[in-house]
Simulated scan of single mutants.
Amino acid sequence: MDARFRGITDLVETPSVAVVVDVMRAFTVAAWAFARGAEKIVLAGSLDEALELKARHPDWVTLKDGAPAPGFDAVNSPGLLRSVDLGGRTVVQKTTAGTVGALAVKEASLVLCAGFVVAEATASFLRARGSDTVTFVVTGEDGRAEEDLACAQYIARRTTETATDAAEFLRRAAGSRAATELTEGVRRGAHPDDVALCLEVDRFPFAMVATPEGPLMVLRPHAMPSPTDRPTDRPTDRLTD
């Protein structure tokens, strides 16, 4: 497999297969939303779009980066979201990097959204797909976010070398700027457990596939068989923490 690593602004053409990586925290949060029972996640292009969707669908759950804000039900924190019951709900997510990256490649034939928590499921999906070329979109810091690049490289390696050890990739992610800012409380709308939750490898046994549904880009879980499946982590279960 020819793995290419690009920042959002480096995408000069639409890739055939794209894996959009946002470890801290958009797609860790998305995975937790599915684990908490969400049916689907709508990736919003702007805060205004998210609020407009909420106005049309009052039962949808809106989620954004940063501190709580009027019109939004939750913030982009896995530590805070893990106690929320989202059974059967639609989540509208708008973040500064992850959702932007996914929308930037919405014309691709396959778009996966990923973090460490769904690394093996994502690699397994790619192996099953058998794609010759995969573009990994490193969303943070204009393509320089160490946690996103480390995760992208780990998934790429894991796709072709299933015995790849995650330790060095996790070490890089743990030392990233994003991890430091979350640990030190620089980023608002965070929980003390966020970094640890973002670095849990293969927590969930599903890949996350984004596809156009009418005018919206919608993310859904795609269960992948795994010997490490834990029943409490399946998207249809209600977790308790």
Rank of each mutant, 00 (worst) to 15 (best):
E168F: 13
A196I: 04
D193F: 15
R188S: 03
L197I: 11
D229S: 07
A178E: 04
P227R: 04
A207W: 05
H191D: 14
E168T: 12
A190I: 10
T164R: 08
P205C: 05
P231N: 08
T180H: 13
A179W: 01
A179N: 01
P215A: 11
M208D: 07
P221M: 00
T183P: 12
R230P: 14
D202W: 14
T162K: 08
P192R: 11
P231M: 06
F169A: 09
M217Q: 10
D202S: 06
D194E: 14
P227Q: 00
A179F: 01
L219Y: 02
R230Y: 02
P221C: 08
M217F: 08
S226C: 02
D233T: 10
T232Q: 03
M208H: 00
T211P: 11
D202R: 03
L216E: 07
T211I: 14
F169Q: 09
E168L: 09
L182M: 14
T211V: 12
A179H: 00
T228M: 07
T183W: 14
L170M: 00
R177I: 07
R230H: 02
P215N: 11
A207N: 01
R171G: 03
E213I: 13
A223Y: 11
L182C: 15
R203V: 15
G175C: 01
G214L: 06
R220A: 03
T232Y: 09
V218S: 02
F204E: 11
P227K: 00
L182H: 15
F206H: 10
V186H: 08
F169H: 10
V209I: 05
H191R: 06
R172N: 11
F206T: 00
V195D: 15
D233A: 02
A210Q: 01
R187Y: 06
M224G: 05
A196P: 12
F204D: 00
A163F: 13
E168W: 11
T164S: 13
E200P: 09
T232S: 15
T183I: 09
A174L: 02
R171M: 08
A223N: 05
A210P: 06
V218I: 04
D202F: 14
M224Y: 10
R220M: 02
S226T: 05
S176V: 05
E213Q: 12
A167R: 07
D229A: 12
T180V: 02
A210G: 04
A178H: 09
F206E: 08
D194M: 07
D165P: 15
R188D: 02
T236I: 06
C198L: 14
P231Q: 00
P212L: 05
D194N: 05
R187W: 09
E213F: 14
T162W: 10
L199W: 07
L182A: 13
F204A: 06
D194K: 07
P192L: 13
P235L: 08
A223C: 06
G175N: 03
T162C: 10
T180P: 13
P225F: 09
P221H: 01
A207V: 01
A190M: 15
F206Y: 12
F206D: 00
E168D: 13
P235K: 11
A179P: 05
T228Q: 02
P212W: 11
L182Y: 10
M208Y: 04
R230W: 11
S176H: 01
V195F: 12
T162I: 10
M208K: 00
A166T: 06
R177Q: 02
A178K: 03
R171H: 15
M208V: 01
P192S: 15
P192D: 15
A166R: 01
R234I: 04
A163S: 11
S226H: 08
A166H: 13
